[in-house]
């Protein structure tokens, strides 16, 4: 569970980025954070990843007090989160496979596990045939899927996506969110920041609106159990890889994502 308690952030230049934020996000929730540019959305995420510290207030993630984390603990804390960037942040000289493997290698995962896990994640995002390609040979949508795969590969409890569709063709944006949606339905908390209200409207998910550093509206928690059926009726599961996914342990606390043919 993620909890912001009376959190404010004032930057060095006296910019009040966030003011008295109170927000609670349950495990396995999907939350859109919307708001215009400068509303404080990115700041909220930076506080969550401990890139910035709040000027006042408390941030609790899974009963861990984020603000008081020691330097050495921060990297381990970040392994519980997968971050998706607006600009993809792929390494151009590495293949798609290596881009995803990179996240495992730099956290000390043995190569044997890397070789097992990466193809599986590639399949999950529908890029199983494109592992050898370089990012430049991919479309924007595909690149973001690589970014997503990299965020997922270490099996984080939470995916944090800052405008993941910002550099993606609007027609393909839907696909990215749909993929995030699926990942969420498999049991991963998803926090997605966006300013594209139209995109948000197409998904029946919780929406938190920020304006001038304050929360101006929050639809509150949306029952995702009911939603699972709905979603599957409305849109077929992500099928780019022509596989049917079975959601396992959707209601348990396990973070394992499993796929069957």
């Amino acid at each position: 569970m993620i909890k912001f308690q009376n959190v404010s952030k004032v930057y060095g230049n006296d910019t009040k980025a966030l003011e008295n934020i109170n927000l609670k996000i349950d495990d396995k929730e999907f939350v859109f954070i919307v708001g215009y540019s400068g509303a404080g959305k990115s700041t909220l995420l930076k506080l969550l990843t401990h890139e910035e510290t709040p000027s006042s207030g408390k941030i609790i993630v899974n009963s861990v007090d984020v603000v008081s984390l020691k330097k050495k603990q921060i990297s381990y804390f970040r392994r519980t989160m997968g971050i998706v960037f607006q600009d993809f942040r792929l390494i151009d000289k590495m293949s798609v496979f290596d881009n995803i493997a990179f996240a495992m290698r730099v956290t000390g995962v043995p190569e044997k596990k890397v070789k097992e896990r990466v193809p599986y994640i590639l399949g999950l995002v529908g890029l199983q045939d494109k592992g050898d390609r370089k990012p430049v040979a991919l479309s924007g949508g595909e690149r973001q899927r690589v970014g997503l795969a990299r965020a997922l590969v270490n099996n984080p409890a939470t995916i944090i996506a800052d405008e993941p569709t910002g550099n993606v063709d609007p027609a393909l944006s839907y696909e990215i969110v749909e993929l995030l949606n699926e990942i969420n339905l498999r049991g991963t908390t998803v926090i997605m920041v966006t300013h594209e209200h139209s995109l948000v409207k197409r998904f029946n998910r919780r929406v938190v609106e920020l304006h001038g550093g304050k929360i101006t509206s929050d639809t509150g928690k949306i029952n995702s159990k009911a939603l699972i059926k709905d979603e599957f009726k409305k849109v077929p599961p992500f099928q780019a890889n022509k596989r049917a996914y079975k959601i396992k342990n959707a209601s348990s606390h396990s973070q394992k994502v499993e796929v069957s043919k």
Partner: peptide, 11 residues
């Protein structure tokens, strides 16, 4: 990216 995926400073 290393920072974002939680690579230790040593790494």
């Amino acid at each position: 990216i290393m920072k974002s995926v939680g690579a230790t400073n040593l790494f």
